[in-house]
């Protein structure tokens, strides 16, 4: 018998005795009536998010400030260009990395800097030595201040995590309410042919492993900038 069959066999054998339902022993302060069926809608318990775009944007901005993400709403492409150029100048970018996309194409044309494209195979050290990785995304999540990226929307796995500065270009209609909405959007967009990697990025890379003191840029980007058009 294969190891698989053996393990599954042991599981089935073990499960012949039913386990008590959870929460039966909870103390008074923690006790809530058990649900009849296991819940599938978590919205009533998760943090509140407003319905309008303004409320979502405000919450995203608040979360970003807390996470040390730089979140900026931009009105149009001209403003995006101005802001990108200012950023490139302030940080002294010499080389950027990006992938093909409607917004990213525009951005790299506007910046006029040497560029590493991660659309096809690329050289790792070229990407590693870029000053910024500019990507699009699948969604922004107001509830948590997160960006959803996938290998398909953001130029592969490494582009959004290897360069020291990750710049996200998003559209207004991508700003979703909460995590349940984000998962629904992923399912709708990809059906059953998911990209091999999807990621919920929430703020720049961080660690608290030394004396529980927050340091940004542990392994991933030290900076995360999001432009939402």
């Amino acid at each position: 018998m294969s190891e698989r069959e053996q393990i599954l066999g042991r599981i089935r054998e073990a499960l012949r005795v039913a386990a008590p339902k959870p929460g039966l022993l909870s103390g008074p302060g923690q006790r809530v009536p058990p649900h009849e069926k296991r819940p599938t809608d978590f919205r009533p318990w998760l943090p509140v998010v407003g319905d309008s775009f303004e409320e979502r944007a405000a919450l995203f901005a608040k979360n970003s400030a807390e996470l040390k993400t730089d979140f900026q709403l931009v009105a149009n492409r001209d403003e995006l260009q101005t802001k990108l150029l200012a950023l490139a100048h302030a940080e002294g970018w010499k080389k950027i990395a990006t992938h093909a996309g409607e917004l990213t194409n525009y951005a790299f044309a506007a910046l006029g800097l040497p560029v590493v494209q991660t659309g096809g195979r690329y050289k790792l050290d070229e990407l590693e030595s870029s000053d910024a990785g500019i990507t699009e995304c699948d969604a922004l999540v107001a509830q948590t201040g997160s960006v959803v990226v996938t290998t398909r929307s953001a130029g592969g796995r490494a582009l959004s995590v290897l360069p020291p500065h990750h710049v996200v270009l998003a559209r207004r209609d991508q700003l979703l309410r909460d995590l349940p909405a984000a998962f629904t959007a992923l399912k709708q967009r990809y059906g059953s042919s998911y990209p091999s990697m999807m990621c919920l990025i929430t703020g720049p890379s961080r660690t608290g492993d030394i004396e529980r003191i927050l340091v940004l840029g542990a392994h991933g980007p030290k900076k995360l900038t999001i432009f939402c058009m």
Binding site: P47, N63, H99, T118, G119, G120, R121, Y122, T144, G145, S146, T151, R152, G155, G156, R157, A158, V161, L179, Y194, P195, S196, M197, M198, C199, L200, I201, T202, G203, P204, S205, R206, G208, G220
Partner: peptide, 28 residues
């Protein structure tokens, strides 16, 4: 676990590098 609203990177991996993907491991 860490007094955070959500952790910084929540990554969902659904296989090795797929066709037309630029990077990622050949084997998973």
């Amino acid at each position: 676990g860490a007094a955070q609203a959500v952790s910084c990177y929540n990554t969902f991996i659904a296989g090795p590098r797929q066709e037309r993907e630029p990077d990622g491991p050949d084997e998973f």
